[in-house]
């Protein structure tokens, strides 16, 4: 991640140097560099791999959250998954700041354990793999709640978590690379649509 930060700083520097003598830009390099450093510090503080202490969820709920994030966007042959991309940390951070998320996600995780206890006699994490898959398959589709209304809270919870997991993954370096996004850089001229593309 540091590489991208440096490249942003370098771009800002280049732009500022190019503008030397221009009217509005003489203060940029030092302040922009300081700003980028500050952001990198923040980012490192936010996501030290492997040692994250959840701000909102209990350790056991965080373990379920992490399991579900991994199931929603798993690692595959092309790229890492949502857990590697920091989605659980991202979701925990937002939840710690928003009572509505606390209800939807915190409450949803309790719902999941209660539903698993009813069905399988165990909380989610202690269920067998095929039981976990079965309950996830049930709450991953709206049509199941139409057939069995007792699933509808679980379906709403899973839909909310799926959105947030996508947010966490596709705003990460891994997720952005997975989509093969090219850009967020400085160009002298915009090339337009490559002729071969249309």
């Amino acid at each position: 991640m540091a590489n991208e930060s440096i490249s942003r700083r370098d771009i800002l520097r280049t732009l500022a140097v190019t503008a030397a003598g221009g009217s509005v830009l003489q203060v940029i390099p030092a302040e922009a560099a300081a700003y980028v450093h500050q952001m990198v510090h923040k980012e490192k503080a936010a996501a030290p791999a492997g040692t994250y202490t959840p701000k909102y969820f209990s350790a056991s709920q965080y373990a379920v959250l992490t399991f579900l994030c991994d199931a929603i966007i798993p690692k595959d042959e092309k790229s890492g998954g949502a857990v590697e991309a920091g989605a659980p940390e991202f979701i925990d951070l937002l939840t710690s700041e928003n009572p509505e998320y606390q209800l939807k996600l915190g409450g949803g995780l309790f719902w999941l354990d209660a539903a698993c206890t009813d069905r399988y006699g165990n909380v989610f994490m202690q269920c067998r793999p095929e039981q976990k898959k079965e309950i996830m398959d049930l709450i991953a589709f709206r049509k199941n709640a139409k057939q069995d209304a007792s699933l509808s809270q679980g379906v709403a919870f899973f839909a909310f978590l799926r959105n947030l997991t996508c947010d966490g993954f596709y705003t990460s370096k891994i997720g952005i690379a997975d989509l093969q996004y090219i850009g967020n850089t400085s160009l002298r001229e915009f090339p337009g649509c490559p002729p071969a593309n249309i």
Partner: peptide, 18 residues
């Protein structure tokens, strides 16, 4: 300008997603 989403703690969602 030129910041990646992952360079911001909240990834662009803002505090509490607000």
């Amino acid at each position: 300008m030129l910041m990646w989403p992952y360079e911001a703690t909240h990834r662009g969602a803002g505090v509490g997603g607000h």
